[in-house]
C-alpha cells in the first residue's frame, strides 16, 4: 500500500514517514493538512520558517541541517530567535524534520 495525503481534493504521494514524494506537488494546503495530522496549528511564525526553508532549498538544493537553520533564522529574525528553543517551540517534533516536511522538502541530509 502506498502512502499519500489528500490536499484540496488531490491525492499526493508521500514516503512512509510522510514526506512529499514530489517537491513540485507542494502548495500551502500541504502544510496545513500535515499540521492537522500532527495536531498542530500553523501561525505566521510557523509559516516564516516554512517559507525560509523553501527559499533555502530553491537556492541550495538541500534541506539545511538544524544548526544551519537555527543560525540562518537568527540572522534573519534577530539574535533572540537564533537558538534551538524558539524553533523547537514552533516545531516540537524537531525543526528540521517537521518543518521540512511541511515545506514539502526531502528529509534533511544528516537526519537519520
Amino acid at each position: 500500500m502506498s502512502n499519500s495525503i489528500e490536499v484540496n481534493g488531490k491525492e499526493l504521494a508521500t514516503d512512509e514517514e510522510g514526506y512529499l514524494e514530489n517537491l513540485a506537488d507542494w502548495e500551502p494546503g500541504v502544510a496545513n493538512v500535515m499540521a492537522e495530522i500532527d495536531d498542530c496549528e500553523l501561525t505566521d511564525n510557523h509559516w516564516e520558517v516554512i517559507n525560509f526553508l523553501r527559499e533555502y532549498y530553491e537556492e541550495y538544493q538541500i534541506a539545511p541541517a538544524v544548526r544551519v537553520l537555527t543560525k540562518a533564522i537568527g540572522k534573519k529574525l534577530g539574535k533572540e530567535y537564533g537558538n534551538g528553543k524558539y524553533l523547537y517551540e514552533l516545531y516540537p517534533y524537531g525543526p528540521a524534520k517537521q518543518a521540512c516536511k511541511y515545506a514539502g522538502l526531502p528529509k534533511p541530509t544528516g537526519c537519520v
Binding site: 537556492e59 541550495y60 538544493q61 538541500i62 541541517a65 544551519v68 543560525k71 540562518a72
Partner: peptide, 14 residues
C-alpha cells in the same frame, strides 16, 4: 538528475 552543484555554495554555512 538533481542539480546538487548548488549545495557547494552552502558549505560555508556548514
Amino acid at each position: 538528475f538533481k542539480n546538487f552543484s548548488k549545495a557547494y555554495r552552502a558549505l560555508e554555512m556548514y
